[in-house]
């Protein structure tokens, strides 16, 4: 991915040198031309076309923003409820991703979405121990969300 971006930047600069004019517009046109050429030759590279990965990152960001909004509203409901009838608890979540930064991103996302908190990553890095604010009704849906995040992160690093 880094090689493709570097190549694309070089192509944009070379395009400006060809045109002999150094406006930002020419850089943009050169970048787009390079993007199209790299897209045509995308099977030439070992990794996939890098725009797909950037789209996956944007997708992950948008899903994350939506989750933060929704779960903050859920926490607000619990805080404002007259009775505290929630049942906190800790559960283990088996994870399939292996790279360090993937686990880091996943646990940050889990922690930043309120209602859940990552307490520890197991030593073999295959399980996350998560503290949840309300276990009985949430655990199933939370697992669903975590699988969603995990799938999105895997999509980014693929």
């Amino acid at each position: 991915m880094a090689f493709q971006i570097l190549l694309n930047l070089c192509m944009a600069i070379i395009w400006m040198l060809f045109k002999n004019s150094y406006q930002p517009m020419d850089f943009f046109v050169g970048y787009m031309t390079g993007l199209i050429i790299i897209f045509i030759f995308r099977r030439f590279f070992d990794s996939r076309f890098y725009i797909y990965r950037i789209l996956a990152i944007v997708h992950l960001l948008l899903v994350f923003i939506r989750e933060v909004l929704l779960s903050n509203i859920a926490v607000l409901k619990i805080v404002l409820a007259p009775k505290l009838d929630m049942k906190p608890g800790i559960f283990a979540l088996p994870i399939g991703i292996t790279k360090d930064w993937e686990i880091y991103i996943l646990s940050c996302l889990i922690t930043l979405t309120p209602g859940t908190l990552v307490m520890k990553v197991s030593n073999d890095q295959k399980t996350l121990y998560i503290h949840a604010m309300d276990i009985p009704d949430i655990e199933e849906s939370i697992n669903g969300i975590k699988n969603g995040f995990e799938r999105l992160i895997r999509d980014v690093s693929r």
């Binding site: 192509m11 070379i14 060809f18 031309t33 390079g34 050429i37 030759f41 030439f44």
Partner: peptide, 15 residues
Amino acid sequence: TKVCLFIIILFSVHS
């Protein structure tokens, strides 16, 4: 080739 190919094609598109 992996680098030169793209520069050649870029130059051909420019011309």
